[in-house]
Structures are given as C-alpha cells and as structure tokens.
Design a protein around this nucleic acid. Structure first.
Lengths: 198, 198
DNA sequence: CTTCAGGTGAACATTGATGTTCACTGAAAG
DNA sequence: CTTTCAGTGAACATCAATGTTCACCTGAAG
C-alpha cells in the first residue's frame, strides 16, 4: 500500500521466460516450413508450441514481431554460404563453380523454407525485408564472381548467367528436372563456357 | 394450382443470365490477377462484379467451380503459343529460338496471372489441374524441340537447358534482371551453343 | 513467511467469411 | 393478363481468427 515499491529483478525466472519465447519461435519456424508463413496464425502457433494464445501475445505484440524473431532465428541456424568459401580461387570459372556449389548445397538443405518464403513474400510484409536483404546479398556475391571475369569479351551474357545461376528458383527448376547438385553445377557452368559466336 | 406445368424456355432471359455469369467470371479473373486466387473470396467476387453474394452461389456451387470457369475463360482469352509457330523450322537452333521467343512474348503479356498462379497453386486445389496440364504441355513442346537435336553429342546438357529455358520462372528471373525479350532469347540460346569442353 | 509480478487459463466481444433460408420484385414468357 | 424465375436484400447460424480482460497460481525477492 505504501508508495514503497519493492525492487524485483527476476533472475531465475528470466530463464524459463526465455525458454517459453524459444518454444514459440521454434513452433513458428516449423509451421512456416509446413504450411507457409501466410497460413501461420497466432492460434496455430500457440497450439503448436503448447502455450496459451495469450502467452504468445505477451511475448510478441503481433504476428509481424513473431515472424521477425522467427526469421532471424532461422537464419542463425541456417546461415547462407560465405564468400570465404570461394574467394581464394583465382580462376573465374573455378570460383564461380565453387560459389554455385556452395549455394546449391545450401538450397538443398533449406529448400522447403525458401519455397514457401518466395511463395508468400508478396503477402507477408514481415518477410519482405529479409528477402530483399538476401537478394542484395546474392547480388553482391554475383559482383564478386563477375569481378574475376573482368574484361571478358562476352560479359553481356556472362553477367546475367551468373546472376541467374545463383537464384533459388534456378536451383529449384533444375532440381525438379531430376538433376543432382553436381549435375546442376556442371550445367550452369556450361552455360558460361560458350565462346563468341553468331 | 393444377399439376399442369407451363413450359418455360427462357430465351431473352438466358442472355442476361449468361451476362451475369460472365460478369462473375470476369470479376474473378481480375481479382486473381490483382490479389491472387488464394485471397479471392466469394464475398469479394460478389462485390467486384456488382451482384449479391447469393447470386454467385446461384451460378456456382462453390469457390472451386468459379475458379474452374475462370481458368478456362482466361485460357480461351490467352491461349499459349502453338507449335505451328515454329515446327516448320528445320534448324534445331532456329526452331528452339522461335519457340522460346513465342513463349517469352506470351509470358510478357500474361506475367501477372502466371506469377500469382505459381505462388498460390500449392494452396488452391482448383489450380492444380490446369497448372499440371500446362507443365505437361511445356514438356511436350520441349520434346518436339529436342527431337530436332536428335543425335547431338551433348544432349545431356541440351535437354535440361531447353526445358529450363521454357519455364515461366526462367523468363521472370531474366525479366527481373532487366533484359528485354530479345536479350533473353539470345541469352538462353547462348546456353545451348557451347561445344564439348572439360 | 509475506509480498510482488510474470505467466497461465478461461472468458469475452469483434471481425469477416461461409453457406443457407425467405419473401419480394420485375421482366420475359405463355 | 397471368405465370414463372433470375436476381435482390435481409436475415441467420456457423466457424475461425483477432485482440483484450480478469482472476488465479506460483516462484523469486524481501
């Protein structure tokens, strides 16, 4: 009753608090993969993570906030390939193939999430930032690969081919055709190798 | 009151009846292009076509039926290219380029609908039949193009390249990169032309 | 041991869509 | 002139999701 407030610094509680949050984020991740972000409702998240719907609202103001946490957690579990994996290679073709192989392996591991993300991005604002970032990242990688080709005569077809090869949709299309990852890399590499001709 | 039923053959009425149906189908088409099939509700269709919701139910038992009518109407307005356009060409490369050019022009005209269709197909059963048919059609076209290359040494990379080139997603990716249709055709044609190499 | 506050479970009102029923109207058909 | 029926407008029950309120429980802090 007195204005005297007793300081309360939750220490032990903070742990279980964080566990609950994590359960919610992971349930969201699984739902995104299973039914897509667009179909993932707060109710479904609550049910899937075994907490009350209100508890979700306690941790996150709205769906967007959950999705952001989910995206950032997923990316920390599934970091895209880094340029260190290929930047040591001098030969432009070898560097290109190494980068493409790294991304294709990554897409193989993470296919489902990228599929639903590309399907739903237009309707889920929370995805648009991260997806744009990823696109920009791919663009940067392309630039690094193209730099190695510097003054090649047929840059006008090398450039779009490199960018096209790195796209998830390209990987997915080739996957649908039944090519394994080595076959895909060989194929897109082949697209580069054409000497000037009519 | 007598059991005597008067035959009623609606003639003039049939016209306006058909007009109403057409209004509904066209409103659905526009909504599919604007917000996607998945987000297109019966309520929205009714509002967009200026009729009562009940009138929609009068003409179609459920959403699936409207979508089917919509798909078939859209396809009659936007028929995919026919092989007659290129089958006369003997040279495999020329035939391939003609076919790809025809499809790319078609995709340019119909981009929006194909974009939303590919986004939503996994969640809208009514789309799955037509989309599978289209995929099969593309497959048939690919076969026709590949036949012209018959005994080429590097068939193992020609085949997936031809199939890949004809896909809507390939067109869309290259479009995003800013290539015009002629540039796209030149590029994918280039992907074919590589002689045997390492 | 008492107090405080984070977290829980259950309830509520609201929104928007579905699919169905009913009486009515207006125009074409007989 | 009378009958018939497509379309209207309003109503209703149902369902699933949203976001909010309330009383309670439990465990850490004092």
């Amino acid at each position: 009753m007195t204005g005297q407030k007793r300081p309360y610094r939750l220490r032990e509680r903070a742990k279980s608090q964080e566990e609950t949050r994590q359960k919610i984020v992971e349930a969201t991740m699984h739902l995104h993969e299973e039914i897509g972000p667009r179909a993932t409702t707060i109710s479904a998240i609550a049910e899937r993570s075994g907490v009350q719907r209100l508890t979700v609202y306690r941790h996150f103001p709205d769906e967007t906030a959950v999705f952001q946490a989910c995206t950032s957690h997923w990316l920390s579990l599934n970091p895209p390939p880094e340029s260190a994996e290929w930047s040591g290679l001098e030969d432009p073709r070898a560097r290109f193939e190494a980068a493409v192989a790294a991304f294709y392996a990554y897409f193989s591991r993470t296919r489902r999430m990228w599929t639903v993300s590309y399907e739903d991005v237009a309707h889920v604002p929370a995805l648009q930032g991260p997806m744009a970032e990823f696109a920009a990242y791919l663009d940067g990688v392309s630039k690094g690969l193209l730099a190695a080709f510097d003054g090649a005569a047929d840059m006008h077809h090398i450039a779009p081919t490199v960018r096209h090869a790195l796209r998830f949709q390209t990987w997915a299309n080739l996957e649908d055709q039944g090519l394994d990852d080595r076959g895909k890399v060989a194929l897109v590499s082949h697209w580069l190798c054409c000497p000037e001709r009519g």
